[in-house]
Design a protein around this nucleic acid. Structure first.
Length: 701
RNA sequence: AGCGGGAUGGGAUAGCUAGGAGAUUCCGGCGGGCUCAUAACCCGCAGAUCGGUGGUUCAAAUCCACCUCCCGCUACCA
């Protein structure tokens, strides 16, 4: 590793993936924002100068499309969500030093500067591509403005992504049979010139970058194979109004692709922070550039790591490529610093299943708050439920269990009993020296915390305070100060002194995960100022000699509350299953109901079913049930692909008489053309055959 | 089937990067204690072939190979 361990002398920037201004926030989103907030607070705690920034992602076609549907301007539409997020994050104690958005002036200017810089350094070139165009609306159709057929799998697909089929990312011009989502009319492809960032310029650089990159393993290993082959150029322009204008002189009517201006918002947001607080407090150029200056070239000089800031990105698991391939190339192309670490969280599940808003299986941010739960409880739960990189399951049952057990019973209880005892008997911190045992234990906790920061171990950072309180409970129990006050006053004073010290340490250590609760505890200890300011070593300083009677830090989560919430979730899941269009997980093996609708004889006559004989059969590589068959239906040989392997042995099939739907539309399965459908019964695909030997090609009637 | 994640006492999670007595914490079970505290807290006990099989090693939960099973996404049963 070429980096000096955190904390360093350089300024750090911690970012979270920009929320896309197109929907409400749920617990899945919240996880990475909490983790980012927690980590940035922890960094400050160990003395690293840190800016924690983010902003709303305003551009892109989904916003434009959805705004059009609602009949409002995209800017207005996106701003509404932007305002919502801006309020929502602080409600979860996620406090950004600056929260901007990609459509503001700072980002517009800076994005254009980036692009200008790529142009000047010859990383941009033009290419003519085919772009869908709606002649009636007289408009180009980027991304989701066009729908059609996926060229890879044949499913219905959007212009930028085969969303219902193979999930492939589609480049402009790839969708077949394009239709316009504006008018529903067929679209035509017209030749259009677009701008491309030549990613291949950075191929070697990116190899090195991934070697240096810290953070979660997946962020480092997953992009490796992605950059092994020749890197495709990135089309950075779109034919739209909504977005940041392409700054070159030649193409005034092009707008930049949303993934260009979105990450640059990380920089813009930091710049805005500097504009607000002054460069003496935080210098964005010192963080984002190389020793404060742009340094062009497609290589990286190891010296630079020591003269530029520590950029740390927290992202969801779905946007690793953008942050570990495109983004570093964009930065390097503009002569900027590179990310030091990318931390990709795992997914959040609900009750053991994956979160799905369309199926109603989700817990919304607003919902959590409406229940009156304290944000810090959620923060603790998600941050410590499992390692950052692993998936974490959210269930109200476990939420209750962990809050009641670990926060109420352990941390809250320890602080309360310790401080209450101290207040009643000594009006505050007793006049005694803390024991060596306790001092050492606190020092250990501080060290654990510091190590966790250096290793990006968010889980441990969330856990240290509770672990220390656990020790505290054990300590007070074993020393039984309540039995000592009368007979051994000095010993009692020392034990309670220890407990107050432990509580103080807890307040400081828990601050990153539970900032508000930490502040409460800090106030109860009679400390002046904020728990957010002092460094960790303050945990060993003497607490105030006097303080008031403490309050209970956490309150129990009641069974009834949890039951009601579970019920609500269940209802919502079953409701959306009712009107859900497809399948759903009901595994009843009951026979399907008979079709009520009868078909006419004419309709039946349209169905051409023939007697055939399998002449050859071979399993298809890569499929576990599919077999490629040659079927002789008298008039001709047909190649048919069928899912038969679960019941029939491929070797036994040749010679078998089968019944074939001959005018089934042609399909391609696993690369094989299929011209018909052999009839078979049920899941097991029990082949139908003829009783007597009807001649091959006989029509079934 | 592809990609990703996983398999650790009854349930849930640590530990694996840098191998060293079979292991953390939470929930649950059993028994005891304490009464300062929010029916909380403390102590003890029961309970495991660390998914399997090989390999490397003085030493493997940890490294390597192969396999099995689960989960997610995607695909398929014409």
């Amino acid at each position: 590793m070429s980096h000096e361990q955190l904390p360093t002398e350089q300024p750090a920037v911690v970012t979270c993936g920009l929320p896309y201004a197109n929907g409400n926030l749920h617990v899945g989103h919240l996880r990475s924002y909490v983790a980012g907030d927690l980590f940035s607070r922890a960094l400050r705690r160990v003395g690293q100068q840190t800016a924690f920034v983010c902003g709303s992602d305003m551009h892109g076609t989904p916003v434009a499309v959805n705004a059009a549907e609602e009949g409002v301007e995209p800017r207005e539409f996106a701003l509404e969500y932007h305002e919502q997020y801006k309020e929502r994050f602080p409600q979860f104690n996620v406090e950004f030093d600056n929260y901007g958005h990609t459509d503001d002036e700072t980002n517009t200017e800076l994005t254009q500067e980036f692009v200008q810089s790529w142009i000047e350094n010859d990383h941009i070139h033009e290419k003519e591509i085919q772009v869908a165009y709606d002649p009636d609306a007289d408009q180009w159709l980027p991304d989701r403005y066009v729908e059609g057929t996926c060229p890879y799998c044949g499913e219905k697909a959007r212009g930028d992504e085969c969303d219902e089929g193979c999930q492939r990312h589609l480049e402009p011009g790839e969708v077949e049979d394009p239709t316009s989502t504006l008018t529903g009319n067929p679209a035509e492809y017209r030749t259009r010139e677009h701008k491309f960032l030549r990613l291949s310029d950075f191929q070697e650089y990116l190899q090195g970058f991934l070697d240096r990159l810290e953070g979660t393993e997946r962020a480092q290993s997953q992009p490796r194979e992605w950059i092994e082959g020749e890197l495709e150029d990135l089309c950075i322009t779109r034919d739209m109004d909504w977005g940041i204008d392409y700054p070159g002189d030649d193409q005034k009517d092009l707008v930049l692709y949303v993934w260009v201006d979105a990450p640059i918002e990380y920089v813009s947001s930091t710049k805005q922070y500097t504009d607000n607080v002054g460069a003496d407090v935080f210098d964005w150029e010192q963080a984002w550039k190389i020793d404060g200056e742009q340094a062009h070239g497609t290589h990286w000089d190891d010296e630079w790591s020591g003269t530029s800031g520590e950029i740390i990105h927290l992202i969801g698991p779905d946007i690793i490529q953008h942050h570990c391939v495109f983004w570093p190339a964009m930065l390097r192309g503009a002569g900027y610093n590179e990310p030091r670490a990318v931390l990709a969280t795992g997914f959040v599940g609900i009750d053991g299943k994956s979160l799905s808003t369309s199926r109603g299986r989700a817990v919304w941010a607003s919902e959590y708050l409406d229940e009156g739960f304290h944000p810090d409880l959620f923060r603790y739960y998600t941050a410590t439920g499992s390692g950052l990189e692993n998936d974490v399951d959210f269930s109200w049952d476990r939420f209750q269990q962990r809050v009641n057990g670990e926060l109420v019973g352990n941390l809250g209880n320890f602080c309360y009993r310790g401080l209450l005892f101290a207040q009643r008997n000594y009006d505050g911190t007793p006049d005694a020296d803390p024991s060596e045992e306790v001092t050492e234990r606190i020092e250990d906790a501080i060290e654990t915390f510091e190590m966790a920061v250096a290793e990006y171990d968010v889980r441990t950072l969330g856990q240290v305070a509770v672990d220390l309180a656990d020790f505290g409970n054990e300590y007070i129990q074993q020393n039984e100060p309540w039995n000592l006050v009368d007979d051994e006053p000095e010993e009692a004073a020392q034990v309670i002194r220890d407990c107050v010290q432990l509580a103080k340490a807890c307040a400081l250590l828990m601050q990153p995960v539970m900032p508000e609760k930490a502040e409460d505890l800090w106030a109860q200890l009679g400390e002046d100022g904020s728990v957010h300011d002092p460094e960790l070593s303050a945990a060993l300083e003497t607490p105030p000699a006097e303080f008031d009677e403490p309050d209970e830090l956490f309150t129990q989560v009641e069974d009834e509350t949890i039951e009601a919430l579970n019920e609500k979730l269940r209802e919502r899941v079953s409701e959306s299953a009712d009107d859900g269009d497809d399948d759903d997980e009901e595994d009843e093996v009951d026979l399907p109901a008979l079709e009520a609708d009868r078909i006419s004889f004419e309709q039946f006559q349209d169905i051409d079913i023939r007697v055939g004989e399998i002449t050859a059969a071979e399993p298809i590589d890569g499929a576990d049930e599919l077999v490629r068959l040659e079927v002789d239906i008298g008039l001709e040989q047909r190649q048919v692909v069928a899912g038969l392997k679960q019941l029939h042995d491929t070797d036994d099939l040749p010679g078998t008489r089968v019944v074939l739907l001959a005018n089934m539309e042609q399909a391609e399965l696993f690369g094989y053309e299929s011209n018909g459908m052999v009839l078979a019964a049920g899941e097991e695909a029990d082949l139908l055959t003829t009783h007597e030997d009807a001649a091959l090609g006989t029509k079934i009637r």
